[in-house]
Design a protein around this nucleic acid. Structure first.
Length: 137
DNA sequence: TAGGCCATCTGGTCCT
DNA sequence: AGGACCAGATGGCCTA
């Protein structure tokens, strides 16, 4: 993987940079060493904490195909939409029917959420689609 | 080639 | 004081 290669390269570079600095300038040892350590911690935090969390969240979002690549911002946005989708289903109490937005019920208009829309398309159930739905929200 | 995305570095701030 | 967290800057890669 490209990023892994880059990571290895940066690690090596920093190790070399630090060792050279330590040998040549005693005054810069603490700050440079601390910076190196802070960089390593931040790298580790990003990779192990942040990215792991994104990966875990990604696994909870249904997509078609299931292994479709999502960017981080897409993961966040779709996660929010999916929560709304599940909330709507809980609100209506019917897990079999496509969910309807609470506001749709109040304002008596109809639109399908992204997840219901994709399910309908997949199932080729055209009856609801043909009822002049406004498309996914 | 421009724009989107990502990894990494960096300095600041907050917390223990 | 040192570590965790955060946001901005930067450069590389990929794709339309």
């Amino acid at each position: 993987m490209e990023t892994f290669t880059n990571y290895q390269f940066h690690e090596e570079t920093w190790e070399q940079l630090c060792s050279v600095t330590f040998q040549n300038s005693a005054e810069t040892v603490p700050s440079t060493k601390q910076r190196c350590q802070a960089n390593a911690r931040e790298r580790d935090r990003t990779q192990n904490s942040v990215n792991t969390a994104f990966n875990a969240l990604r696994l909870l979002i249904p997509t078609e195909p299931p292994d479709r690549k999502l960017s981080k911002i897409e993961i966040l946005r779709l996660a929010g939409s999916y929560i709304t989708h599940l909330d709507n289903q809980l609100y209506t109490g019917n897990m079999e029917q496509p969910c309807i937005q609470k506001s749709d019920i109040e304002y008596k208009s109809t639109s399908l959420c992204t997840f219901c829309w994709s399910t309908l398309k997949k199932d080729k159930t055209t009856s609801l689609v043909n009822k002049e739905l406004q498309g996914p929200y």
